[in-house]
Amino acid sequence: MAYSEKVLDHYNNPRNVGALPKDDPSVGTGVVGAPECGDVMKLQIKVGANGVIEDARFKTFGCGSAIASSSLATEWVKGKTLAEAALIRNTDIVQELNLPPIKIHCSVLAEDAIRAALADFAAKQEKNA
């Protein structure tokens, strides 16, 4: 069974690694973790005036599948509206990357990270409103 090309690609060449200015009001930051393995993931979105996610960045300290999951998540959220991004499910990530059962928690982590980033952005909006 060939290793999923997509995982390998996201593993070897993760996209959108890095950080956006955390205090920028147009940036939402989500930090999540998986207590069983101690992996931590940070995912950031930059939202344009039209409510569309213009850019996304991540940083993950963990296994290859967690890195691939978060790399894919940043690819997917870019260009989506906030509502569309909220619809991304971990099962989509599992399918896309062909993750094995023991690595499903990595995709859960990525889904959690998107939600956390969206929530952070929403909280900032509310505060500034």
Binding site: M1, A2, Y3, S4, V7, S65, L97, N98, L99, P100, P101, I102, K103
Partner: peptide, 8 residues
């Protein structure tokens, strides 16, 4: 070996 060429 498990699905996806990952080792458990």
């Amino acid at each position: 070996e498990t699905v996806g060429d990952v080792v458990v």
